[in-house]
Amino acid sequence: MKYSYYPGCTLKNKAQDLDKYARASAVALGFELEEIPEWQCCGGVYPLATDEIATKLSSVRALNYAKEQGQDLITLCSACHHVLKRVNDDMKNVEDIKNRANNYCEFDEPYQGETKVLHFLEVIRDVIGFEELAKKVVNPLTGRKIGAYYGCLTLRPGKILDFDDPENPKIMEDFIRALGAEPVIYSMRNECCGGYTSLKDPEFTKTRTEQIFDDSTGFGADCLITACPLCMFNLNKSDAKSKVPVYYFTELLAEALGVKEGA
């Protein structure tokens, strides 16, 4: 199975681990990630006003490219996942945006939201299946208690992203189970880490991440996993007493699949 792959800017720089372990794991799981050529940054944030077009075009181009290949479009970064799915929803359902974006892009045929956008985790859940994943695990992470940290952008707005139940998600918990570890469920797992405000208000972000560590470790987590480079950054910056290591989910995946070394 071949997928168009949209890595996004951070995965080419500060979050290379998220990317490289995903690529190695994909091979182990039997699917191929074809990075789309000349992709441009999604902007990290879905445009704030309904009438903005220009800021959506990079996503539209990526989506249309995948359509031309006849492939689903995979992302890993939670921000790219969020922006691509929302822009895709606009291209499918919002007439005005659809028309203006197509007028601007002049594709061979208009793009109308045909591409299916999938988060890497969704491919595991919906295409491969967690049972299948469990069978492919060679180094089960037995005995580890892992807290899934979802943050905001993978889940919300739930109706459009359609990733999982935005209040009580279980995709990452099922993922953790498939790797042989024990998921730790805690209520801060879908609460914001402070996001981009850490640029100007780093102290505020610290109060947020401290609550996340307190809550997750209170329930016994010995580490956290995330799909978001920004969450990773903010959590790492924390000076909470309860701080535990944070990994990209792909790193633990590669470890369990036995492809971490050499990735």
């Binding site: 805690y186 209520s187 801060m188 809550d215 209170g218 329930f219 016994g220």
Partner: peptide
Amino acid sequence: GKVKPQPD
């Protein structure tokens, strides 16, 4: 807004 089950 939210009910958060606590470790205790």
